[in-house]
Amino acid sequence: MTIQLEDPACDHPEPDLLSRIEPYRRELLAHCYRMLGSVHDAEDIVQETYLRAWRAQDGFEGRSSLRTWLYRIATRVCLTALEQRNRRPLPVGLDNRPADPAETLISSPEVPWLEPIPDAASVEYADPAAIVGARADIRLAFVAALQFLPPRQRAVLLLRDVLCWRAAEAADLLECTVAAVNSSLQRARARLAALDLHAEAELVLSDEDQRAVLDRYIAAFEAKDVPAIVDLLTAEVVWEMPPFAAWYRGPEDVARHLSLRCPGGPGEFRLLLTRANGSPSVALYRWDPAVGRHRPFALQALTIAATGIDHVVTFFDLRLFDVFGLPAEPPTSAETEPYPV
């Protein structure tokens, strides 16, 4: 994302403001993404945050850190944006039961679906322990659960439990009392605890074991070997496919879906590894005989537990290939770099 701060309203802009605030771009993008559930909307909000900081730089008196000041601006812009927007769910959060794989899939593009975010855009820490924490705070299940909270409760939870702000700081930002912040935080925590969503399992596999599962999944999917794919799934696996509202639970229904509804045959797909929301992901490319090459098809976010793949979310929004910096067609094996699990 390129930040453009040219604004005729600023007669005397600070020449090094951009260099001072640019290091905060990734963490601000992650914060706005948690608030909004959309990487595209989050990029717009970060752009607006930088522009507002540019315009208001003369009013920054240094009573708080530059980082805190930027978070104040970004959170307020997010809250304003959320006044005009609906929550962004995943199919499993629509209060509908698992679907029958024999039923025709119906696309619902009118729903503002939750979007994934690439690790490369949201996780950047030198400390490995900090990377683990950052990935946990960006996982799809957590961001999906946040969408069930009213905007101000969402902001309070993120400020207090993710950013570790003091209650007084959050109250100052939200222009309310400390008691109101504490009450909102209590309600937000209770709401998240009560949600009957498919929670992502804790990752307990070593990097080597996780890579072995991924290699087997890619080989099975490219061969369209449904039994081999299903053998990698947990007993309670959830399979989602926005913009389709239908979702499936359990290996048997996933196998029926792959056999009945999933297009393509053996050798038609190529998969490329990437990372989304702190977890392994694969970009799917399908062979197009009309052009004689593989073309972008979907992006799958995977959750791998000790007993297998526990959650698969297939996103069919092809704009995500640009967001993730993915190529227009998969590279050859010789061109593929090692995958950072």
Rank of each mutant, 00 (worst) to 15 (best):
L5W: 00
E6H: 13
P13L: 07
E14R: 15
E14M: 09
L17K: 06
S19Q: 13
I21F: 10
E22T: 14
C32F: 00
C32M: 01
C32L: 01
L36K: 00
V39T: 12
D41A: 13
A42F: 03
V46G: 09
V46E: 06
E61L: 12
E61P: 00
G62H: 11
S64I: 15
S65C: 02
W69K: 04
R76H: 08
T80I: 02
A81S: 11
A81T: 10
R88A: 10
L90Q: 05
P91N: 08
G93D: 15
N96E: 13
P101D: 05
E103W: 02
E103L: 12
T104A: 13
P112V: 04
W113L: 05
P116F: 08
I117D: 01
A126M: 06
A129W: 08
A134V: 05
R135S: 03
A136F: 03
L140F: 04
F142W: 11
A144T: 02
Q147H: 08
Q147M: 11
L157F: 15
L158E: 11
R160N: 00
L163V: 02
C164E: 14
W165H: 11
D172K: 10
C176E: 12
T177A: 08
A179Y: 05
A180T: 15
S183D: 14
R187C: 02
A190H: 11
R191N: 09
R191M: 12
L192Y: 10
L192P: 09
A194N: 12
D196S: 13
H198K: 09
E200Y: 06
V204D: 11
D207M: 04
E208S: 12
Q210I: 00
D215I: 11
R216E: 14
R216A: 15
I218P: 01
A220W: 07
D225E: 04
L233K: 04
E236M: 01
E236G: 09
E240W: 09
M241C: 11
W247S: 01
Y248E: 10
G250K: 02
E252C: 01
R256K: 14
H257R: 09
L260V: 11
P263K: 07
G264V: 04
G265Q: 13
G267D: 07
F269D: 07
L272S: 01
L273W: 00
A276T: 05
A276P: 00
P280N: 06
S281D: 03
A283P: 09
L284V: 14
L284Y: 13
W287R: 07
A290H: 08
G292Y: 10
R295A: 12
A301D: 09
L302Y: 06
I304P: 02
I304W: 02
A306E: 14
I309A: 08
V312W: 02
F316C: 01
F316H: 15
D317Q: 06
D317S: 08
L318M: 05
F324G: 05
L326S: 11
E329H: 13
T332P: 00
E335G: 02
E337Y: 00
